[in-house]
Design a protein around this nucleic acid. Structure first.
Lengths: 334, 334
DNA sequence: CCTTGTTGACGTAACGTTAATTCAAAATAG
DNA sequence: CTATTTTGAATTAACGTTACGTCAACAAGG
């Protein structure tokens, strides 16, 4: 394909002029007539700048890496979207990476570590990245931002504690007294349980222990079963994540438990599909899209050497989306 | 960061030797002792090859672009996964692109068109890419493979006609006689309807007209409503895509139609979530993961200048996943 | 008329690789 | 002991950009 050299030859000017035309550089000036001549030559030859050469020269690739827990986790849909959009606004494209396959010495990691691949890295690994990998990443010359709570890295995350609190308080306000928290493992679930605890405490209720059954539909089903075989069955459940909420719903159907009449369910996290289930799931929507956008902005602060806003995102807050799976307690049960 | 030059200086050898050590080139030979000396220097300086410089020199970036209809379409989960994995096996990483935002002159398109960005491009746009964009893409120096039926490009796709046929035949075998096809727009839906027609014809039944209500949950709900207000209500529905199937289920619930007792539903395409709905949706699973893998393989054939296998993937075939939303017709209704 | 400034461009040195070419020294053959 | 081959490496020319430094020609100012 045509290079700047070809264009220069065709337009009868030097390389420097072509480059100046391409970049709009002010240092190298030229007559308007020369400029149009160059432009015409570019058009005629179908010139397209070579991104690689540019990157080498400028030490900047206009690409960022997005490394996620599972490349296709539906919960991360809006996060991916926010990252993609915000990156585009910065003129950058997004390189995909899966935390699950990021082992020490892996293809992707090696490429990532090599210089000149990306301008920065965004990671949400949810504990999947071990210390070895993190140590290797730390040696990366370009900035890395973690999209979850991190100890010794710049990080930014949504307010998981608050989400647990909001879900629980909603149920408390619906007069529920026996509320159970079905959770998963890890820091996230911990935080949400903490919020649950706080809301229970604030209402003068005793929090139930954390039913940590894991992630996903099976975990939800297991959680429901465990919850229901307690001495006094709960009238409401806060489910740690929306995938588990789907499991809770299915298990309830199988067990003949009517939702919301016999049991109110509030999920944390939200997926578009949830509104199309029956009953439609009441859930706390986390600002994942905004997390994505904020993550990209923070990463570009880091890249530019500016001070970067990190920590928990409190604006926007997690937002309660009221649908059909939770209702006010009418019969008193104990 | 350290470059080959730094390593060469540290090890007291020339650049060529370092490059040879890095690449394992046989042309430039060296004593084992020199090799280890270079290796040590690399280790000590924390040398990481510069991908950009390599790309420039080799005219190969080890990246491919994956352009999808909607970056987060849940139906494409397995497709993304297949592409990602197969790309990794080729030592390549994946650059993300959304067909929706691929307008003529857009950021992403411009980058893609510039030389040296990717080694090849995989597209599934489902009609979203207009002729302008396709024309621009055609000028791209690297191969482009379309993951759907295409007129004048190498393409590869799953067997949509067969999926419609399988779904319909299943219902026919369950003694259904009034079967309706709720579809969307575009070539895909057309193909699936064609399969539906063929199965109906083969069973000596008259196909109902294509209820093309579009894509997504709302489309499904609309389709169901339209179908039910026909002179003789259908006993079974084939739904063009799984998102619409969710809409059909929700609408049925709202309309008081019992599934599968009053109406059997079979969806085309499958998403993991579908098995966790109640009723769990019987669906025809398309080999999207394999499409992703096959797409990458075909693209690399193109890249290597080998003849590339294209057309409709017939092995594996679409596969019927029987769950709870379709049942045999017991009462005769007309 | 000389000085200074401006306009419009050109030449060229990097950026970090890779691979072809060259070449001295050591080993082997005759 | 000389001629030839092999070993082990060094030099260097790209790859396509960008940006710094230079410079001739001309205009304006004193």
């Amino acid at each position: 394909m045509a290079t700047q050299r070809d264009v220069a030859r065709a337009a009868g000017v030097s390389l420097a002029v072509v480059s100046a035309v391409v970049n709009g550089t002010s240092h190298t000036r030229m007559k308007e007539s020369t400029r149009t001549r160059v432009l015409q030559a570019m058009q005629q030859l179908g010139y397209q700048p070579n991104q690689t050469a540019r990157s080498l020269r400028l030490n900047q690739t206009d690409m960022i890496a997005m490394i996620l827990n599972k490349i296709d986790n539906p919960v991360y849909g809006p996060l991916r979207h926010g990252i993609y959009e915000a990156a585009a606004e910065h003129g950058a494209t997004v390189l995909l990476g899966d935390a699950e396959t990021m082992r020490s010495g892996s293809q992707f990691l090696t490429r990532l570590l090599s210089q000149g691949t990306v301008d920065g890295i965004l990671i949400r690994g949810e504990g999947l990245l071990d210390d070895d990998v993190m140590a290797e990443l730390r040696s990366h010359p370009k900035p890395i931002l973690i999209l979850e709570h991190a100890r010794d890295h710049p990080w930014i995350d949504v307010d998981d504690r608050r989400a647990g609190e909001i879900a629980t308080r909603f149920l408390v306000n619906l007069s529920h007294r026996h509320i159970v928290f079905v959770g998963g493992s890890g820091y996230l679930s911990q935080q949400r349980y903490l919020g649950y605890q706080q809301a229970m405490d604030a209402a003068g209720l005793t929090p139930a222990p954390h039913l940590a059954t894991g992630f996903g539909e099976q975990a939800g089903a297991d959680g429901l079963r465990q919850a229901m075989q307690a001495a006094t069955a709960p009238t409401a459940i806060v489910v740690n994540n929306i995938m588990s909420a789907v499991g809770v719903l299915a298990a309830a159907r199988d067990l003949g438990i009517a939702i919301p009449d016999q049991l109110s369910v509030v999920g944390i996290h939200d997926v578009d599909l949830m509104q199309h289930l029956r009953p439609a799931v009441t859930a706390v929507r986390m600002p994942m899209y905004q997390l994505g956008r904020a993550g990209v902005e923070a990463l570009y602060d880091l890249i530019a050497g500016r001070p970067s806003a990190g920590g928990v995102i409190t604006d926007p807050e997690p937002e309660l989306v009221i649908r059909d799976s939770a209702t006010a307690l009418t019969r008193i049960r104990d």
